[in-house]
Simulated scan of single mutants.
Amino acid sequence: MQTPSPRVQEQLAQVRIVLVRPVGPRNLGAIARVMKNMGLRQWVLVDPRCDPLDPEAVTMAVHGADLLRQARQVPTLAEALQGCVQVFGTAGRREPYPPEWQVQSPRQAFPELLAAGPVALVFGPEDQGLSNEELALCHRQIQIPTDPAYPSLNLAQAVGICCYELRTLLCPDPPLPPSPGLSKPAPFELLEGFFGQLEALLLQIGYLYPHTARRKMLKLRALFHRAGLTVSEVALLRGILRQLQWSQTARRRNLPQDD
């Protein structure tokens, strides 16, 4: 995983995950784990209905158990949101919401969330989600796009998706560094040696005939050129060809001789 810059770490530290009346210790453990995976550490439990240090929560959190001990607990959502300049509430239900609300996906909404300052991302209870009154305390409402056939998400899954969206927005994947030798493009002479060996074997086994070899080899050349073979890939293919040539020669030696 890419190490975030100090600026990105500061932005992540401004994000507060708020869980309203969570009931499942296993969910709390899974959320602690994914928060730590994605570099988020600040969270608040509003009137929780389970103990964040329940053995099931600790087991699910694995190396994120320290976040369970750090979770702040408050009695009301309003108290959990103190100091936040932007609050995003997650809307999980499918019935119509007030027309004044512009419900967005996390990917649409999060660029503005990260540009704000201290912000909160609020999730409702597992069984019913946030009420309209609770969503009305939020500045914006977001909803994770899901298939209409089964739209309901588990709480830990919803938090995990949102944490991932935040992380990828701040830390886009860098290009993977090339592996020395493995991704080096094969030079002209190496490819020509391969094509010569391939043509000889295909003539030997009767796939090619002298009068059609040129036309078919043009097609095979085009195929391998499109593949953009590397040095190591050509070496792999030539090793296969050598084994096939040896097998073909050995088979012919073992054929019974005509009297």
Rank of each mutant, 00 (worst) to 15 (best):
Q9G: 01
Q9Y: 08
Q14H: 07
R21P: 01
R26M: 14
R26G: 14
N27D: 06
A32M: 00
M35L: 15
R41L: 07
R41K: 13
W43S: 00
P48L: 10
C50R: 02
E56S: 11
A57K: 04
A61K: 01
V62S: 11
V74R: 08
T76F: 00
A78F: 03
V85N: 02
F88L: 12
R93A: 02
R93C: 07
R94F: 00
E95R: 15
P96T: 14
Y97L: 10
P99T: 09
P99V: 08
E100L: 05
Q102T: 14
Q102V: 12
Q104A: 10
P106D: 01
R107P: 01
E112V: 02
L113E: 02
P118A: 14
E126A: 03
Q128K: 15
G129V: 09
E133F: 09
L135Y: 04
C138F: 09
C138H: 01
Q141H: 14
I142K: 01
T146Y: 03
Y150M: 06
P151N: 06
S152V: 15
A156T: 00
T168D: 05
L169W: 01
C171L: 11
P172E: 03
P175A: 13
P177K: 02
L182S: 09
F188E: 10
E192M: 14
F194C: 03
L201E: 06
L208N: 05
Y209G: 05
H211F: 11
A213Y: 00
A213N: 07
A222L: 07
F224T: 00
V234Y: 04
L236I: 12
R238F: 04
R242N: 14
Q243E: 13
T249W: 12
R252G: 12
N254D: 13
Q257E: 12
D258I: 12
